[in-house]
Design a protein around this nucleic acid. Sequence first.
DNA 1: TTGACTCTCCTATCATCGATAGGTAAAGTC
DNA 2: GACTTTACCTATCGATGATAGGAGAGTCAA
Lengths: 181, 181
Amino acid sequence: MASIVAAAWKLAGEQGVGGVSLRALAREVGIRQPSLYEYFDSKNVLYDAMFADGNRQLLARLEAVELPRDPRAAVKAFMQALIGFCVEDVPRYVLLFQRQIPGFEPSAESYEPARTFLNRAVELLHAAGLESQADVDCFVAMVAGLVDAQISNDPGGDRWVRHLDRLADMYLDEPKRRSHR
Amino acid sequence: MASIVAAAWKLAGEQGVGGVSLRALAREVGIRQPSLYEYFDSKNVLYDAMFADGNRQLLARLEAVELPRDPRAAVKAFMQALIGFCVEDVPRYVLLFQRQIPGFEPSAESYEPARTFLNRAVELLHAAGLESQADVDCFVAMVAGLVDAQISNDPGGDRWVRHLDRLADMYLDEPKRRSHR
DNA sequence: TTGACTCTCCTATCATCGATAGGTAAAGTC
DNA sequence: GACTTTACCTATCGATGATAGGAGAGTCAA
């Protein structure tokens, strides 16, 4: 079952996530297409397994990051790791963060690692002084905007993501400026 | 031909852009599926017509906006109009701004209105003091991030997009702050 | 040992999709 | 009036995800 998911990632890397056909996947694994249904009740269940797998990868990556003591530096390190993870594998990013597969909605279990990841991000932002829901929302949307623009318009480059540190400072300073008025 | 595009938008509104099938579209217009090929050489050509149509709508909308004299207020008004346009019709937004349809790449002609629109946005940002490519990139990515988060997580609401004005001020003030150091 | 059960794979087939082949009848053109 | 073009049709193609139903090997209790 894990080998099927691995083969699916391989095909996704060649033709995009949406381009994975069950017949090609079966051929890759050495069986016939209907046999895949012994492992996955539908194609979306396969996507769900890939989604869970990708989220586990993300969590492992972010847990391996050594966070500096300084809260602001910690936020930057965390977000840099996240951005690197997104940019280094586009199909994985598409499956995890874009709602691009037509009828696919991740199951609650598969979504759970993503939630714990998001919680960590929110904690770090809180520690760095971003306390309100609004500020956190804006920060998260900013990072997502950078990654999306990067992947859409300059895949492999750094035209957008290189601005993360500067923008992070700007967002983290904003509550201070607001209270000074 | 225009009525076919209109029917396609109607179907897209019901089932999403990707959910438009040529048979359903033909039924909607009152003909059989192969007859659609008299008007569009392929499904992607139909998408291209929809893309061009949506971009014309966008351009018309933004030309109707009365821009205040103050450059900063003009940027805000322009971006608010853009955001409203995106949020009010999700399938249209998906087709125009997401790369979600598998093999679809807009043609140069269809893309042209989008380019003139982007030029206007860049002009306004320049007038408001954002001069470097980097600053413009960041601003654009921020707006896209807001819209995307809004549509993905809270369609119909304003949890993200309501922060536009505040964030716009923050981005537009940043060059000033940078030079003061 | 045997019978029942399950697990894993198969072949054959389905409905739907976008796309093509080839024909027909009306409308326009010279 | 002969020709071409336009706008439609039926029939069919190959690929897709999904289902039906069966074959063979392994497990396990009687």
